[in-house]
Design a protein around this nucleic acid. Structure first.
Length: 237
DNA sequence: GCGACAG
DNA sequence: ATCTTGTCGC
């Protein structure tokens, strides 16, 4: 019924193509191209959201292992309520635009281990702000059939004007003439982040939730915690 | 053709 | 992503 259950193996309506494991870049791009139309935009009441999961991956410096972490925090204080980590090896090389094929499998495994189903998930990366409009947050969203948004730290596709310096101001991120996300200032006078829709959320809701989840730091709390956890997990083995 | 290119 | 400590500033 919800995203956690689908990650445990039940078949989700739209989560078919995302779980495919293409062997080469051409196949991977084809998967993204035919999956992109499945992304849905839905209004989410950011103020009513209670449980938010942050997802991130860390890579080992010496071997080829990676650690994925999923951390569930509760609004409005963002206290940790659940978390899970997975250590594995990437099954796909790093190719800009295709890194979901490296990270999504491990991230989905981590999410499947959670005992608490989050209302929304936040990925460290992009959703629709992607060359084929199907970045990591879309892969995760379709696989779980759950609300997911992406928050990137550096621009990937598109262009955006510099948002005003106060927290909360944003400018549209435009690529190929279409709005694919937003350049959002989460902290006054500090470099902005890039927000985009992953699945089952709309851009207004994603922007509002990102701001709410980032009350003190540039990066949303759930993603910060996931970032920290996967590093620790990698260091501990 | 060339450069740029989420993590 | 990762290689990397202390340090300048609010």
């Amino acid at each position: 019924m919800d995203g956690i259950d689908s990650a445990r193996g039940r078949t989700a309506a739209g989560g078919i193509a995302q779980q495919e494991r293409p062997t080469d870049a051409a196949q991977a791009r084809a998967v993204q191209e035919r999956s992109a139309p499945l992304v849905r935009h839905e209004a989410v009441d950011a103020g009513a959201v209670s449980l938010v999961a942050g997802l991130d991956v860390a890579y080992s410096a010496d071997d080829d292992r990676l650690a994925a972490a999923a951390v569930v925090l509760a609004a409005p204080e963002w206290r940790p309520v659940d978390s899970a980590t997975v250590v594995s090896c990437p099954r796909f090389p790093y190719v800009p635009g295709l890194f979901a094929f490296r990270e999504a499998p491990a991230l989905l495994d981590a999410v499947a281990q959670l005992r608490t189903a989050p209302d929304v998930l936040v990925c460290d990366g992009f959703g629709l702000a992607h060359p084929r409009r199907f970045g990591l947050a879309c892969h995760v969203g379709l696989a779980l059939e759950a609300p997911v948004l992406g928050v990137g730290k550096t621009p990937f596709v598109g262009r955006a004007a510099e948002p005003a310096s106060e927290r909360g101001s944003w400018t549209p991120l435009v690529d190929g003439g279409e709005p694919v996300g937003r350049c959002l200032r989460t902290r006054a006078g500090i470099k902005p982040v890039y927000v985009s829709v992953g699945h089952r959320i709309d851009l207004d809701s994603a922007t509002e939730l990102t701001l709410r989840a980032a009350p003190h730091y540039r990066v949303p709390e759930p993603v910060r915690r996931a970032d920290r956890l996967c590093r620790e997990r990698l260091a501990a083995c």
